[in-house]
Design a protein around this nucleic acid. Structure first.
Length: 309
DNA sequence: CAGATTTGACCTCA
DNA sequence: TGAGGTCAAATCTG
């Protein structure tokens, strides 16, 4: 099962990456005893799960790891309903017509059966700018661009289209790279340097079927629930799409911050940039935390006021 | 009233 | 020339 292998690799890398980011956070929050405990718990949880996945990797199993079999962290989420995403990496997967001319250097295609009108809560704020009937397609295609296109010159766009076979399944195609931070520039540190967010079009096409990288968060608005093994409080419900994808080479793989800069946000800690006041989702974390059976430290709000408010 | 959405017109390219 | 993608004015919504 190659896809399962990829899945496990992704999960492990995600967990380890998360552990690193948490450790960075820990370094920044050494002064606070509560923060220390909270972050240590998260780090241990991440590595626990990474180890668990690695140990499980060699064992045969017919289906993805059941949630119940996974190590429990101090932060848990509910809802077993799963959403499948199918990723397709490469150049201009969807656009055949303008393949040679489009400036996009990356594209991610996702199939989701659990979106509301394809309005995925992917952590970014989108503005619909067009809808078009597509030849041969039963349903029109909707065009979205980043709400911060003008303010931050963010060129990320996405296309959402119901599939012919199943109107409840949406094909979401992400194009371009988010160069925005999700909020107005004035309120934030400068966007990450381009080199830090360099996305290389991969020549290897991989299809990943989630639960991927341990998502398990529910979307109270869209009734969207993704099984997740981890992420805990680091991932609001709005991130219905794995925020970090990986470019797999023959022997290694590198995390790429696409389509979301989730890792970057993690890196910045629970910074205000994580919660975009301007986004249509208004307050990801609040929704997420209130809708999930989270076992957050009672003083989490004090530890991370930006995160919680 | 500001921001988001809708929708017809326009642009680009194969 | 037609299809896909984008623009922008009109309209809607909170």
């Amino acid at each position: 099962m190659e896809s399962a292998c990829v899945h496990e690799q992704t999960t492990v890398v995600h967990e380890l990456t998360q552990g690193i980011e948490m450790a960075k956070q820990l370094r920044l929050n050494l002064d606070s005893a509560e923060a220390r405990e909270f972050l240590i718990e998260k780090i241990l949880s991440s590595y626990d799960k990474a180890l668990f996945v690695l140990k499980s990797a060699g064992q045969p199993r017919a289906s993805p790891l059941p949630e119940s079999s996974l190590p429990k962290s101090s932060i848990t989420t509910s809802s077993p309903q799963s959403t499948e995403y199918e990723f397709e990496f490469g150049q201009n997967v969807a656009s055949k017509k303008r393949k040679a001319s489009t400036p996009w250097d990356n594209e991610v295609k996702i199939l989701s059966d659990n979106e509301i009108e394809g309005n995925a809560n992917d952590g970014y704020s989108w503005r619909k700018y067009g809808q078009k009937d597509i030849l041969g397609a039963k349903f029109p295609r909707s065009y979205y661009k980043c709400s911060y296109r003008k303010v931050q010159k963010c060129l990320a766009t996405k296309q959402v289209q119901k599939t012919d076979e199943d109107p409840t399944v949406f094909e979401i195609t992400y194009r371009g790279i988010h160069t925005c931070n999700g909020v107005a520039q004035s309120a934030l540190p400068p966007p990450p340097s381009p080199e830090k967010h360099e996305i290389k079009p991969t020549h290897h096409h991989h299809q990943l079927t989630t639960p991927n990288a341990g998502e398990n968060f529910s979307n109270p608005r869209a009734n969207l629930t993704v099984n997740t093994w981890d992420l805990g409080c680091t991932l609001p419900s709005s991130h219905s799409i794995p925020p970090t994808v990986f470019e797999f080479n023959d022997n290694d793989f590198h995390p790429l911050n696409f389509p979301n800069h989730f890792d970057e946000e993690l890196l910045q800690g629970y910074s205000p940039s994580f919660i975009s006041p301007a986004t249509s989702e208004s307050n990801y974390f609040t929704d997420w935390a209130s809708s999930s059976s989270l076992d957050l430290p009672k003083d989490a709000a004090d530890l991370f006021p930006d995160f919680m408010s």
